[in-house]
Amino acid sequence: MELPTQTFRVTRADLVRYAGASGDFNPIHWSDRFATKVGLPGVIAHGMFTMALVGRAVTAWAGVPDAVVDFGARFTRPVVVPDDDQGTEIEVAAVVKEVTEDGLTRLDVTATCLGEKVLSQARATIRTPR
């Protein structure tokens, strides 16, 4: 079963806010000068910010904010966030892989930016929505 795709817009302001809230002040997430110096195309989103957005999507599918039992992902491709008002967009989709008898649902999640997968092996286990 496929779950409805959710889309999240990501701007530079979001990255600054996330840096402050998470304590991750790595300059690749706010300085183009630094990001390009280390070989990136520009400022990129924190992998954990992308994962947090996926967490929102999973939580929304679960229907309650405390249903996530297990959540993991591999960061495969950077999410480049241009310095403009539009920023970029991350699309999050999922399929239900398994519903267990003990009340858990396993999801395989896909997160894409500009048509490219930015996470791989993204999986979440949630308590099965009632």
């Binding site: 996330y18 809230a21 910010f49």
Partner: peptide
């Protein structure tokens, strides 16, 4: 609350203790 706001998580249980207690 700050972390939830930074990622756009608006569920009341992240912000309102009463909503969290209800869960």
């Amino acid at each position: 609350r700050e972390f939830a706001a930074a990622i756009g998580a608006t569920d009341p249980a992240h912000h309102d203790p009463e909503a969290a207690r209800a869960l």
